[in-house]
């Protein structure tokens, strides 16, 4: 199972801090997962239609949208960071 996490305004708008999902057959990259989430419509459809507003980490390292994913990966979606 993929472990998916949402932070900051993504979590607020989606109404959940995360979920677990099976890796779909034919899904190999973060982009494939984004397409799957966008297809849900609603807030998911709106947010994942604009991947340029989102940053992603795979297994707690910053990643790009074309990064590969595999079963049991932890994938986090969040806005650009604003610490310090």
């Amino acid at each position: 199972m993929l472990r998916i996490l949402y932070f900051a305004w993504l979590r607020d708008r989606l109404g959940t801090p995360g979920e677990t999902l099976p890796l779909q057959v034919g899904a190999h990259s973060v982009q494939d997962l984004i397409d799957q989430l966008r297809a849900r419509g609603g807030a998911y459809g709106e947010i994942f239609a604009k991947p340029e507003l989102i940053r992603v980490a795979v297994n707690q390292s910053f990643a790009t949208i074309d990064a590969p994913i595999a079963a049991n990966d932890e994938i986090a979606f969040f806005p650009p960071v604003t610490g310090g």
Partner: peptide
């Protein structure tokens, strides 16, 4: 730290409004 560590700030205002930075 400002651009490479995963922290997010939300601002809370006196009028009750709240916004992500």
């Amino acid at each position: 730290l400002k651009t490479g560590a995963p922290f997010w700030k939300r601002e809370e205002f006196a009028n009750g409004r709240s916004e992500w930075v």
